[in-house]
């Protein structure tokens, strides 16, 4: 295990922010800490980095008890949400910082920094100051700076949070590829489930300071342990007292075995997908919706006012709402 967090509890004042959190991160993995705002993701990441001390519990990094080590001695790379670029240093000196602190020879520093700048495609901007870079470039500089010291683990706090949607998407794929290349154990924080599913190989869902679920993207998406996780990881709707993914519902004009009758309220065409909004009988006006392909919608001739039958597909994951 690259990181073992055991029974960590942390409060700011009297508000508990992490409650008895235990998380293991496998060596070489790319793990996402996913959860709603204020759930304690940053705090957990900072506890791992040593920027916060847990009230109770331990943190092991590469098998060594790091609980009482200062961040200086933990050998972690940390990338801050707002980059924390050293404003008075050039891109080159930013990346070289950790190596200069370690008093490496000048030639070695030069070589290593240029290598990293190439890796993050900033070799041409080495002499610029952070204020002369775009957000995405600053982000990549921060990443190179963290990688320069060859950390045992790389921790990224909302690495793409401050970037616009387009750049975000690009950097996501890039981070995935970078990880495949560098293979350093990486934990990144995000509140965007799509980002987590796309990039990570393991997802830790954290909410209200507690770990709700851990698993591969497919596991947490398809087998959420509770309605909260299910809602957080993707679209859900409610039929017959169950939470179901809207694309896991069969829709039919004729009655189906074990189906629920409903009336179509609206049909919204969103390109390839069609979103069918329905009034389910016996659900006191709470609307549900079903996601179907355009082809199916056309074939069935779905239109507002039609009466249909809905039924979760055989393999669908359903969560009974009443049980919670």
């Amino acid at each position: 295990m690259a990181i073992e967090v055991r029974d960590v509890t942390k409060s700011f004042g009297t508000t508990p922010v992490l409650r008895d959190v235990s998380v293991d991160v496998e060596s070489g993995s790319l793990t996402a800490l996913l959860g709603p705002s204020g759930g304690g993701k940053s705090t957990l990441l900072r506890v791992i980095a040593g920027l916060e001390r847990p009230d109770i519990g331990t943190v092991h990094i590469s098998g060594v008890d790091a609980t009482r080590l200062s961040p200086q001695r933990r050998d972690v790379g940390f990338v801050f949400q707002h980059y924390a670029a050293f404003k008075h240093l050039t891109v080159f000196r930013n990346v070289a910082f950790g190596l200069e602190i370690r008093k490496r020879p000048k030639d070695e520093i030069r070589e290593r920094v240029m290598e990293l700048l190439e890796l993050v495609h900033l070799e041409k901007l080495a002499d610029r100051y952070p204020s002369q870079l775009s957000g995405g470039q600053r982000q990549r500089m921060a990443l190179a700076r963290a990688l320069a010291v060859e950390p045992k683990v790389l921790l990224l706090d909302e690495p793409f949070g401050a970037l616009d949607a387009q750049v975000r998407k690009e950097l996501r794929t890039w981070l995935r590829r970078l990880h495949d290349e560098v293979h350093v154990t990486t934990v990144f924080v995000t509140h965007d489930q799509e980002e987590a599913i796309e990039v990570a190989d393991t997802i830790v869902v954290l909410a209200d300071g507690e770990v709700k679920q851990v698993g591969s993207p497919a596991e947490v998406y398809d087998h959420p342990v509770d309605p909260f996780v299910m809602r957080f990881l993707g679209p859900v709707t409610e039929i017959g007292g169950d939470l179901v993914r809207p694309h896991d519902i069969e829709i039919s004009a004729s009655p189906l075995d074990g189906g629920t009758p409903a009336t179509i309220a609206r049909v919204v065409r969103l390109g390839f997908e069609v979103r069918v909004e329905v009034e389910v009988d016996g659900q006191d006006g709470r609307e549900a919706w079903v996601q179907v392909t355009r082809e199916l919608a056309d074939r069935l001739g779905l239109a507002p006012g039609d009466t249909v039958t809905l039924r979760p597909t055989p393999g669908a994951r359903r969560l009974a709402l009443s049980a919670v």
Binding site: D20, S22, V204, V214
Partner: peptide
């Protein structure tokens, strides 16, 4: 990676501010 759900019931119940390292 696992969340130690199996271990958790075994760990002793904690009273707030009870055990653990006292924080200055």
């Amino acid at each position: 990676m696992t969340t130690d759900t199996a271990r958790r019931p075994l760990s002793p119940p904690r009273t707030p501010g009870g055990e653990g390292r006292p924080r200055p």
